[in-house]
């Protein structure tokens, strides 16, 4: 009983609609509503008869309002919003994959930032500081020359038997790799052996490895001061006779300095051609200039809580 009365209301509504809707829409309405069933239940339904009435006179247009006739088979394309399992799975993986990729990337970026922040130290820098040395052309080179760009600093000496040449070759590969990714780093070589490594000697020596490595030298005291600032141990005797043949024992590290001249990370011998370049790239990409860092004031993004 209940069902019947409801259907009656529906039908009544439809009749009202029918009167106000222009003719060409009508067949559409007939088709959309489940009239077939209704007709069986109610053999005297006016709606059904009317639909049937119009059909012999004029072929029904099956084109939905605003739809286009499919030229080939005369049927309109059905644009249902039905649930499609196949599409849903594809969508799921696409969205899921994209999100996974995004958050993984952000996570790594934030970890690198944290590491750099930790190494940056609070207040006074632990490694690095003021120094005065001279480049190949005799120009003064100080910590101010580190500002505005990332620098990588290596301490060594040109008479180094095997480690320095290997490390400098590695540096050359890093620089090439980074340059290919449009990352510019200022490479600096500071000698621990100023008695033998004059700026000219260094220039000659470094040209064997990579273009643009800046060789720095100075007086024994200047070099010693600089090494102390960078916590570099070295064993050059203060007074050597000219022509004396000796080796210098020294710490083997690449120091990555950010554009503020602050220490970021020390890369030891364990960083090979691949890992080292990647590490530097990560640091360069995750670097946030000081003003922005202060603006952010710690919670670096709204989703940072996800990585805690």
């Amino acid at each position: 009983m209940m069902k019947r009365s409801m259907l009656g209301v529906l039908r009544a509504n439809q009749n009202i609609l029918r009167r106000s809707i222009p003719n060409f829409v009508r067949p559409q309405l007939c088709r959309q509503l489940p009239m077939g069933n209704l007709a069986w239940n109610r053999p005297f339904s006016i709606t059904t008869s009317r639909c049937n009435e119009t059909s012999p006179h004029k072929p029904l247009s099956r084109v939905p309002i605003g739809g286009k006739e499919d030229a080939k088979n005369g049927k309109f394309k059905e644009s249902t919003v039905e649930f499609s399992a196949g599409k849903a799975i594809v969508l799921f993986f696409l969205v899921g994959g994209a999100l996974y990729f995004f958050f993984e990337k952000e996570k790594r970026k934030m970890e690198t930032q944290k590491e750099a922040e930790a190494n940056r130290g609070y207040g006074k820098p632990l490694i690095g500081g003021e120094f005065v040395l001279y480049d190949a052309d005799g120009n003064e080179f100080t910590e101010k020359n580190l500002l505005g760009k990332f620098s990588i600093i290596y301490f060594g000496f040109s008479h180094c038997p095997d480690i320095c040449p290997d490390e400098l070759d590695k540096l050359g590969i890093w620089l090439d790799k980074l340059e290919a990714k449009n990352i510019k780093i200022q490479p600096i070589f500071i000698t621990c052996d100023p008695a033998r490594d004059s700026p000219e000697v260094l220039k000659e020596y470094l040209s064997d490895f990579h273009d643009g490595i800046i060789g720095l030298s100075g007086s024994y005291d200047q070099v010693k001061h600089c090494c102390k600032k960078y916590r570099v141990y070295f064993s050059t005797p203060p007074s050597v006779k000219p022509g004396q043949d000796y080796l210098v024992d020294h710490s083997i590290f690449f120091y990555l300095m950010d554009p503020e001249g602050q220490f970021v990370e020390a890369l030891g011998q364990n960083y090979d051609e691949e890992v080292g370049a990647q590490k530097i790239e990560d640091h360069v990409k995750s670097y946030i200039p000081l003003e922005e860092r202060e603006k952010l004031n710690n919670p670096s993004s709204w989703y940072s809580f996800l990585f805690k």
């Binding site: 004059s198 000219e200 064997d208 000219p242 022509g243 004396q244």
Partner: peptide, 16 residues
């Protein structure tokens, strides 16, 4: 630039 060496042995150049 080659420094005068005190001993007789000729040190090899410092190149690759």
């Amino acid at each position: 630039m080659r420094l005068p060496f005190t001993h007789s042995k000729q040190e090899p150049a410092n190149t690759r």
